[in-house]
Amino acid sequence: MEKEMRKKKSRSYINPYIGGILLGLTVLLANYISGRGVGASGAMKSTIVAAVESIAPKHADDAMFYKEYSESHAGNPLNSWLVYQMLGVLVGGFLSGILARRMTWKVEHSPKITSRTRLIFALLGGVLFGFGSQLGRGCTSGSALSGMAVLSLGGFISMMAIFGTAFALAYFVRKLWI
């Protein structure tokens, strides 16, 4: 019984090493075509900038960040490589979910906490990750993975800081997960 369950599980997700190789090939392809790695948080920043520019154009002219952003990035912030790539990620994740029949509305959490607690911590984690990704010039994909692929010192530091901190804090928040 347990063996069968494990068998079923290993069929539903691909082997992590094979997944890793495919992931690496994707990053390699991105570098070969566009001379850059993949990313995620940058697309969300473009969305924020575009939103601020359209909702509060006056504020976008005054506040330092948006001013510097529009000076260094010509054109509509949404017309950027990362934004198109991120739309692709949505589609790609969706396709994979459909093919593997993993599409469900659900909140995934440890039985020890409620859905509500999980969502509060998800929001908090998101806020921290969003802020940190801007300060650190990229998230796990843009800075750590793509940075490491091109042997950037920053990429390695970023990777160590992210995983090191999460590992150091893991014990204190174990109730959230196990």
Binding site: G125, G126, L128, T140, I162, G164, T165, A166, A168, A170
Partner: peptide
Amino acid sequence: GGVIMGAGFILGGFCP
């Protein structure tokens, strides 16, 4: 930034 992201990772369970 990485330290903050690490904290976000373990609390939120995802990265972007």
